[in-house]
C-alpha cells in the first residue's frame, strides 16, 4: 500500500502537526515503506485471537474518590509559554 502527498497532508492535519512542504514526499515514501512491512500481518489468520492491549491483562486499578493532590497552579504556570492572572493565554478563538 502506498500513500500520496495528499494523504500525508490529511494525516498531518488530523495530528495538528506542521510539516515542511519539501518533506511531504519523503514522509509519503517512509510511511508507505512502513505499511509494506505491515502486509505480513494480513497474511496471518487471527480470527479467534483476543486483542492484547496490555502485557498484564489487568483491570484498571481503582482508588477512593478522595483529594490526593494539592493545588500546584503557580508552579505549573511558571513553566507555561504565556499566562495572565492564573489563565493560560492563546490566540483569540471567538471574534
Amino acid at each position: 500500500m502506498s500513500l500520496t502527498a495528499d494523504d500525508v497532508n490529511k494525516i498531518a492535519h488530523l495530528a495538528r502537526l506542521g510539516i515542511d512542504k519539501q518533506d511531504v514526499a519523503a514522509y509519503a515514501n517512509d510511511l508507505s515503506g512502513m505499511l509494506d512491512l505491515m502486509t505480513q500481518m494480513a497474511e496471518v489468520n487471527t480470527d479467534h485471537v483476543e486483542p492484547m492491549a496490555h502485557p498484564m491483562d489487568q483491570a484498571q486499578r481503582l482508588r477512593a474518590d478522595a483529594v490526593t493532590e494539592l493545588n500546584h497552579r503557580e508552579a505549573f504556570q511558571a513553566i507555561a509559554p504565556q499566562v495572565e492572572a492564573g489563565l493560560y493565554l492563546v490566540p483569540k478563538v471567538i471574534e
Partner: peptide, 30 residues
Amino acid sequence: VKRRILMGTYALSTGYYDAYYLKAQKIRRL
C-alpha cells in the same frame, strides 16, 4: 518523532483501525 506521529495517527484513523491497530493487538497476543 513526526514520522511516528503520522504513522500512529493514520493507524488509528477512521477506516484503518481494524486493519492496523486491532490486527496488531491480535498479533501481539500470538
